[in-house]
Design a protein around this nucleic acid. Structure first.
Lengths: 354, 354
DNA sequence: CTGAAAGCGCTTACAG
DNA sequence: CTGAAAGCGCTTACAG
């Protein structure tokens, strides 16, 4: 009724040997007579043999220690709250296997903290690592150590081409900027202008955000669709006073600004200020479904949020690492998750939804 | 190093019985002395016992026959091309288990063909069914037979509340209409009007499409945000002549129409006509990432496509059925997939992406 | 170079 | 009411 899978036993019977010999051939271990070997391989091929992974897992029971090294979530970067959820989900699906995953976090603003945590974890080298490479040079150095120690690692959030990472799961950053550009274009009339706002304290953010700005601008470049002017504002911190002064200034200098693109997850700060300060209504576009952004999205103060599925990044990263370590399965190297366009009407589908 | 899971053996040792007895208690079979039973349950709880599903699967090796009963994809409903992909993906992930899934298709326009196929498949009753209930009364009847025969079934695409379905995976139809409404609102100025187009040959479509229309209208109702008028056009077939005549008429009667919402997957037909007929440019919003729609989306002739993840519907449906049959796991009953907002800039992420 | 045997954790039929 | 044993398909250490 069901076409049974071929077993070692079947191959052994046909080849007239024991299953031990078949196994030796199939795993390239031990010395087996050339002729026997050929015969066995031929039969295995004909029977389309693939091992029963249940039986293998049951027998082998090899455990792995994994480590995730991600920024600690804090008020100012609630974005990183979502990543542990994806890890938890993946681990619960893999509950049957003897895996440990230790979550290590580092201070979002401290390169030395990252270095310290990275160094510490290597004292007891894990079998695989999930890593958000926020700090470029420190990450490159760390990854070269991982390479020396032959520890595979998967990037989330961003990647560094100069390392030999096993895989990347995350946003196509440039592309997501283009999507934002398209949305801004839809919201902005020909006689209205656009403001890009970067809110960044540290250099990492700048790199990430600059990519989005590039993508955003690229959507408009070379086309005639854009008569609006595009201004840019870099706000160095999130103090209310700084935000107020800098925003007020640029908006009064350029009264035609109607659309504001906030390149990071802090659009709620701009939304809050615009909303409470008596400025005219703006079209605000931002990133990431953190609670405060969602709140302003529902209120209609933020128009669009672009989502990058942070939980799914870590979820898939864990799965990739597991498949690689357990089944030698080489994962798809670059896995760009969809750029989600989220509004007040479809936001419910995207939160608490992993 | 790894916290080992408790095994039957461990419980047996602590309870001073054999693993056979433990198993009998845990599966509520056979007669076990009250006292022994209590002791064993207590220990199992304390040890937080969960069975090792690898071992169980290896031993049990119970096979299932599943059937999917979905419309045959055809030129006129390319939407249904995607569903087999999700089935294929799920089956390849479950390759290790002795499962069969037979895909049965019926003619999208023929209720009698559905009835025939449904009847035929029951001659050899499967262990579970995945079903798209296009034809209401015929589906209800079929589902009541399934209930009698105790065959579990999962709906995709739509559901019928009066049946005892195991689960539904698909769109929140009303809600997706609301999302379309919001997008239309963004694209339409106060002095411009909106046209809703239903293209439907059969009654099923009408129900589905009407729900979307309701959602669409509900977005505008009771709010003052809408000064535009909303017209509706029902096109009974897709002949070029019919489309031309009816579209021309309504657009000349109402020259302020600027946005067209096509409630089904045939927005490419409207896009094609508008584009090639010398009408002024319209904002077109449609459904489903079938090739022709994607083509017009990329060209900028369709503005937004709303996606409902057809592959994921069947993928999850198969998984739910499998988990239910194999592990007695009751699935989440209503699983609404996200309403995806797709534009020319993020469409790449949503095609060939399962 | 090859075979026989133990055992992963579970389920099930049999014996008592 | 309970235990002992076989076996799912694989891997591995041992014996020859």
């Amino acid at each position: 009724m069901f076409s049974r899978k071929a077993r070692l036993k079947d191959i052994a019977a046909l080849a007239g040997v024991s299953i031990g010999t078949v196994d030796r051939v199939l795993h390239n271990r031990g010395q087996v007579a050339e002729k026997t070997q050929e015969r066995i391989l031929k039969i295995a091929r004909e029977l389309n043999y693939t091992p029963n992974i249940m039986a293998r897992a049951l027998k082998t029971r090899k455990g792995f220690n994994l480590v995730s090294l991600l920024p600690a979530p804090a008020d100012e970067n609630a974005f990183w709250l979502k990543h542990p959820e994806g890890i938890a989900k993946a681990m619960s699906e893999l509950e049957q296997f003897p895996i440990n995953l230790t979550q290590i976090t580092f201070n979002f603003n401290s390169e030395s903290d990252f270095q310290k945590k990275a160094k510490d974890l290597l004292k007891k080298p894990p079998d695989g690592i999930i890593l958000a490479p926020l700090f470029r040079s420190q990450s490159i150095q760390f990854c070269s150590e991982l390479k020396n120690k032959k520890i595979p690692f998967v990037f989330v959030d961003n990647y560094l081409t100069e390392t030999n990472f096993l895989a990347y799961v995350g946003e196509d950053i440039f592309r997501s900027g283009r999507v934002a550009g398209q949305l801004a274009g839809l919201l902005t009339a020909a006689d209205e202008d656009i403001l890009i706002v970067n809110i960044a304290k540290n250099i990492r953010n700048m790199h990430h955000l600059n990519q989005r700005v590039k993508g955003f601008r690229s959507y408009f470049s070379g086309s005639d669709r854009m008569k609006s002017k595009i201004f840019i504002l870099n706000i160095p911190d999130t103090k209310r006073k700084t935000v107020k002064e800098m925003t007020d200034k640029i908006l009064s200098d350029h009264p035609c600004i109607k659309t504001i693109f906030v390149t990071g997850s802090k659009s709620f700060i701009i939304a809050e200020y615009i909303h409470s300060s008596g400025h005219k209504q703006m079209n605000i576009i931002g990133y990431d479904l953190i609670d405060k952004n969602v709140e302003y999205l529902r209120k209609g103060i933020i128009r669009f949020i672009i989502g990058q599925r942070p939980e799914e990044q870590t979820y898939r990263a864990v799965k990739k690492l597991f498949d690689y370590l357990s089944f030698n399965k080489l994962p798809e190297k670059m896995e760009y998750l969809p750029v989600d366009i989220v509004t007040s009407e479809n936001v419910d589908f995207f939160i608490n939804n992993i």
